[in-house]
Amino acid sequence: MSQENRHDRNLILPTLIVSISSIDPPGLIIGMSLIEVATSFGVSVGLAGQIRSIGSVLAIAVALAMGVLSVRYSYKSLLLAGLLVNLVSVLCCGYAPTFSLLLVCFSTVGLVTSLVTPMVFSYIGETYTAERRPQVVGTVAAVRTVSYLLMVQLIGYVVAGWGWRQAFLFLVAPLTAMGLLLSQRVLPGIRSEAKACGADILEGYKGVFASRSALACLLGNLLAGGAWAGGVVAYSVTYLREDFALPLPEASRIFSLLVVCVLVGNYLGGLLARQLGGKGVMVSSSLLTGLLIMGYMNSPSLALTVGLSATMSITAGVVLTCANTLLLVQVPRFRGTVTSLNSAATQLGLALGASLGGFILDASGWGVMGLVYGVMHIAAALIYLAGVMDREEPDISYSS
């Protein structure tokens, strides 16, 4: 191998990290600037908040289509397409003259998520050995979390000083352009094993749906993601403000602690999965996360809530790393299809978790919400335990 090729190989992981980190800030900008966006276009804050839900619907549809596209096209082509769409989208968001056009432009964020995320993890599955994958997945998750924390601070600064449009133009556009250029220069043109073997483009779905382990992994990730990201993460700041009458800055600081502890969990998850095996660590961590969620949203004191928040976030970070690691050993011949279906399952979980939480909050309150989310995470742990394999399954041929 030439020195140049070795250098490019060393840049694969940083390139994947930059690429996947560029898809998070658009949603963060809208979430932090809802009032400013609503004021700019003369609409209600509630209507402005619907921008993100439309993106989730599109993400599910595109993720399902990606199961076919990942067999037909190379991972690099799909990743570059996602980054290019992201770049065009953020530029259009920054210059959108009407709310309707902003809605259309931002809705493509769902498409970007379903293009970029599965391909990043498909590259990890194809590029790194099974022994290294837990560490690599943990590294990606940890650095992505650091990037998220940094963006929270930068977006707040830019929005306060120049406005929400400039956050799209000055922060997201350059990061996306960097990911696009690095991906074009560094990443190899890998295709799925199914494409290399001449498999039918629908055979990936047949392979995944015939795998009990893959289906269990997808269902577990749907429930765990719905409870954690769609529930706890989405409602934590509001919960802290309403239940403990905290001002927004103090609630935001506690939420930042939650994010930092997820980062710690991401790192620990990679280490523990490598030493003890991903399945056992994921099952125990998912079970513990469910119990901690119940305690977190039923805590009688702020001090206990903060302590439970930190512990809960660490175990949730461990689950995230282990879940992504185990996903990569499910039906390896159709790895692109598996990761694409997981993206759809995750987006569905986020939508269901957020919708369910809103209904429970209106009907019962925070305590019941915590119990429901906790049960969802415990159910995910039982599904992981009963159905998920922690080793690569043998390839099965499906003739049409």
Rank of each mutant, 00 (worst) to 15 (best):
V62P: 12
G125Y: 03
G67R: 01
S53T: 06
M66Y: 07
C105W: 03
I54K: 05
V104E: 01
L78Q: 07
S44L: 03
G94D: 00
F99G: 07
S74W: 10
L83W: 01
V71R: 12
Q50I: 09
S114M: 02
E126N: 07
V90A: 08
V88S: 08
L69R: 10
L87F: 15
G46H: 06
S53M: 09
L58Y: 01
L80V: 05
L64R: 04
S122A: 11
L80R: 05
Y95F: 00
S56D: 15
L80K: 02
A63P: 09
T127P: 04
C93L: 01
I124V: 11
G49N: 00
A63T: 05
G46W: 00
S77K: 13
C93K: 07
C92F: 15
A96H: 04
T113E: 14
S114G: 06
L58D: 02
V112F: 01
C105Q: 05
L69D: 03
S114K: 02
R72K: 13
A81Q: 01
E126R: 07
S100E: 15
S56P: 08
V71W: 08
G82R: 11
A61M: 02
V71K: 09
I51V: 14
V85I: 11
T113M: 00
L79F: 00
L102E: 13
I124H: 14
K76Q: 02
L101M: 14
L103C: 04
A96L: 05
L47A: 13
C92A: 15
T98M: 11
P118W: 07
T127D: 09
V104N: 11
G125N: 08
F99E: 03
L103R: 10
L78F: 11
L79H: 05
V104D: 08
V90L: 04
T98R: 10
P97M: 08
A59Y: 10
V85F: 06
S44V: 06
A63D: 01
G82Q: 08
N86H: 14
Y123V: 08
Y73H: 04
V104A: 14
T113I: 14
T113V: 15
E126Q: 11
I51L: 15
L103Q: 13
I60K: 05
A81H: 04
S89P: 05
S100I: 15
L80M: 13
N86L: 15
Y123N: 00
V116Q: 13
V88A: 14
A65G: 10
S44W: 06
L111H: 06
L115D: 08
L87P: 11
L78M: 10
L47C: 03
S89C: 03
L79Y: 02
V68T: 11
S77A: 15
G46L: 06
I124Y: 14
V120M: 02
A96Q: 11
G94S: 02
A61D: 02
A81E: 07
S44T: 10
Y123R: 07
R52M: 12
T108S: 05
I51F: 10
F121H: 14
A63S: 06
G125V: 00
T117D: 09
P97D: 11
G67E: 05
R52H: 01
V85D: 02
S74T: 03
S100K: 15
T98L: 10
E126I: 00
Q50R: 15
A59S: 07
S44F: 04
K76F: 07
L91M: 15
V85Y: 03
Q50Y: 15
F99D: 01
Y73I: 01
A96D: 07
